[in-house]
Amino acid sequence: MDNSITKLFNIKYPLIQAGMIWNSGWRLASAVSNAGGLGLLGAGSMYPEVLREHISKCKKATDKPFGVNVPMLYPNLEEIITIIIEEGVKIVFTSAGNPKSYTQHLKQHGVTVVHVVSSVKFALKAQEAGVDAVVAEGFEAGGHNGREETTTFTLIPMVKEQLNIPLIAAGGIANGKGMLAAMVLGADGVQVGSRFVASEESSAHSAFKELVVNAKEGDTQLTLKELAPVRMLKNKFFEEVMQLYTTNPSKEDLIKLLGRARAKRGMFEGDLEEGELEIGQIAGLIHDIKPAAQIVKEMVTEFEAAKTMVNQL
């Protein structure tokens, strides 16, 4: 499966595990990398010293490439970037911010930089900033999302039409057929989040994992667009958000309701009522919790089978 993405990251398969907050620790990242994909540590839910610990443990658990996902809105951003460089991490995925901020600084230290976007406009800005590849993430993805509500399979061909660097598709991809479809539309690889939440190595709480595998079509919704659009499972907290919207709330009202550490409370600590439970629409197609290596193997096997089937049409 050699292509521009496998060569860029020196991996076996063009399959990247998303760096999801409260889900993507060293166990998951190393397991995906060992299976031939690219594992990412989710720095967005880690204090600087915790990230350093996860990088160290990941190095010991795999001799394969792995990376770190860094939300650019992170309060300790400069310290996080310094740790990544000091620890010799060679792949960084940036998101939720301006790619110009640290792209050249990272590249000067030999780091491959990828930026996550939700529109053609921001894909081109990322390319202009000098990133090595772009992740184009559709509106069906879990967690924080674009305001444009452009779906993955609409976004990918539009970005591909104008981009000159490798393109990675994200949002609504959880099996080999989805992987093939994204690549037929122009992606060079895929980034997968929700499927890896329901893995044995995910650091998510077991109660959250079980909720994910029991989710059905329509159980998630994008909301809080005035703050930072986020797709989450419908629960008591979600209903409180919807009730607040009926009062025409101010941004400050929404911030007050959201409070602090909602995502940690839900995904990491397992509070299924008051927590923020971020997951993609594809959760309706996820029915079990299994080892990350098995997920990678099954996706690649299904990808090859689907490609053979299409070639016979």
Rank of each mutant, 00 (worst) to 15 (best):
M1Y: 01
S4V: 15
T6S: 03
N10R: 14
P14H: 06
Q17G: 00
G19E: 04
G25V: 06
S30A: 11
V32L: 05
S33E: 10
S33Q: 07
N34A: 04
L51W: 09
R52K: 14
H54T: 11
H54D: 12
K57I: 12
K60N: 14
A61N: 15
A61R: 13
T62L: 13
T62I: 11
F66I: 09
F66Q: 03
V68C: 10
N69P: 02
N69A: 03
V70F: 12
P75F: 10
E79C: 07
T82M: 12
T82R: 12
T82F: 15
G88E: 02
F93L: 10
G97Q: 00
N98S: 08
Q104S: 14
Q104N: 14
V113D: 03
S118A: 12
A123Q: 06
A126C: 03
F153D: 01
P157C: 06
P157E: 05
L163S: 05
A169C: 08
I173A: 00
A174L: 15
A174N: 08
N175E: 15
A181I: 09
A181M: 10
M183P: 08
L185W: 02
A187F: 05
G189D: 02
Q191P: 01
A198E: 07
E200A: 00
E201Q: 08
S202L: 12
S203Q: 07
A204K: 01
A207C: 13
K209W: 08
K209Q: 05
V212G: 02
K216F: 01
E217W: 13
E217G: 07
D219V: 09
L222Q: 13
T223P: 02
L227W: 08
V230F: 01
M232P: 11
L233G: 05
K234T: 06
N235L: 12
F237D: 06
F238T: 10
E240L: 14
E240H: 14
T246Q: 12
T247N: 15
K256F: 11
L257M: 06
L257C: 12
L257D: 07
M267S: 05
G270Y: 00
E273F: 08
E276F: 13
L277V: 04
Q281K: 02
I286N: 02
K297S: 14
M299N: 09
T301I: 06
F303D: 07
A305P: 15
A305W: 14
A306Q: 08
K307P: 07
T308L: 11
T308Q: 15
M309D: 12
M309T: 14
N311M: 11
Q312H: 14
